[in-house]
Structure formats: C-alpha cells, structure tokens
Amino acid sequence: MSLTDQIVQYLVTGVSIGAVYGLVGLGLAIIFNATGVINFAQGEFVMLGGMCAVAFTGLGMPLIVAALLSIAVVTAVGLLVERLAIRALPRASIITLIIATIGASFVLKGGAKLLWGPEAVILPSFSGHAPLHIGAAGIDPQRVWVMGVALVSVIGVQLFFKYTLTGKAMQACAINRSAAQLVGININRMVSLSFGLSAALAAIGGIVLTPVTMMRYSQGATFTLTGFLAAVVGGLGNGIGAVVGGIMLGVLEALAGGFVDVATRGLIHSGYSKAIALAVALLILWLRPQGLLGRRERESA
C-alpha cells in the first residue's frame, strides 16, 4: 500500500468516524441553544436508537418499520427526559440541570442493560457488505449511509431553523429567552421540541451506525464525550460547527493513528491517537475559545 493510498484511507476513515461525532454534536447544539444545558444523555439516545432497532427487527419487523418505531420511541424518551430532568426543576441552575442529565444517562444505560443484557448486538447492513473503493482505499457501504445521514441531518436542521416558524421560534429562544417569551413564544414547548428533535436525530444516527460498529448498552457515554468535544471545537451552539468539528476530530484521530509512531520513531504509540486528537482540540480552544465557527460571547454568564 503506497503512502498516498494510506493517506486516502485515513481521510476516508476519519471523515466517517467524524460524521458520528458531528451528529451527536449537532444534537447537543440544538438542546444547548434552547436551554443552555449540555445534555449528557445525548449519547444514550444514540445507543437506544440502535438497541431499539435491533430489538424491533428481532421481533420480525421489516427494517424500515423498526427504524421508524425506534425513532418514535427514542423521541418519546427524549421528551420524557426533558419532563423529568429539566422541566421538573424550573428554578435550578444550569449546572444542576446538567447534573440531572447525567442522572438521566445512568437511568437509560441501566435500563438498556436490564432490557437487552450486556452483550453487543448488530443490525444487518442496509446495502450489503461489498466494500466501495476510492482509489485503493476501501469503505464499508454502511459508512456511506452514516455520512449521508449526517449530511442530510445537518442540512435539514439548518433549513428547519431558517425557514419554518417553529424553527425560527426556537432560534429566538436561543438568542433571547425573555424577549422570545414577550412576543408570545411558548418557551416550554420549544425546550420540549429541542429534546424531541435531538433525540430523534440521535436515534437515526444510532440506527445507521449499528450495522457497522455494533451497539452495546455501555456505549452511550463515549458518544456523548466525543460529540461534546466536536460541539465545543466547532463552536458550542453552532450546528454546522459541530459537524465540522466532529469531522476534524475524526480525521485528526485517524491521521494521528496512522503516522504518530512513524513521526516520533516509535516514541508515541498509535494507541494514543485519541489523546493526540484531543490535545489538538485543546490547542484550538486556546487559540479560539469560542470554537471554530462560534461567535464571541457577548455577555458574561
């Protein structure tokens, strides 16, 4: 395998891993905009999406029905989390609400283990296993699905915020809560909606991801953390930023994995690729605290 082929393979891999980070980051951004809260249960929604789809197909449902049903179930779970962990605490500080979402993530993780046991599960691929080729680089067709879904999601969410009344109302909430309330926007509804929308997006991500990476009750936290990083690097609250941040992290991780031990003559092993990607992310935040595409903060919290 020539060096160019390797680089192409790393880039392809990086973009496909990063798309997942970005998708989770996008969900985090939506909730952050509506509530100012980082939803630490976001990754659990991804996990639930995958696990539900496996469970429903296991009952003999066709994939598309199982997928739609899973999205519905996870959306309902998202709304429930909002009810119990956010709305039930109307005067709680942001940090308290964040802790509440961590609590929710424990409940969801534990529930998933009780329901489906500790082992990894898998869905059949949507379009076969024959790898697609970009030059000498190979990619699982399912990963193309993942990237496609991430792309469609981020565009769809942008269109929703720009061109629909509800979307604009949600944006208004994000920009100025009290002013939005004064012009008659129902803040509670918008917050519910943000949780529902994020949960649905996460579920879609989980469903397309499961055939290629499998799914396990314990995987949610990893999704949350990588997604959170993607969102922060991209500029917290900026949906496109989250996806760009995610893809950047994914590519960094893959390139670091591929070259760091060669570049350091074996001093740093490629097992540290995640740590290296995170170190670069930190560096970016030092240089641009508002993130890649984030706006400078206008007011102090």
Binding site: R91, A92, T96, I99, A100, G103, F106, V107, G111, L114
Partner: peptide, 26 residues
Amino acid sequence: NSTRTRVWLATLTILAFLGLLVGCSR
C-alpha cells in the same frame, strides 16, 4: 429560595441514585 434549592438538590440526588440503582440492579 434556599429551601427550594435544597429540595431540588435532594430530588437530583435521588434521581442520580436511581440511575445507579438501575445500573446495578442485577
């Protein structure tokens, strides 16, 4: 105000514990 805060903190703690309990209930 502080009573409320305490009530919420207590609720949260219970929620978190509930999570742990479910997590370990086996």
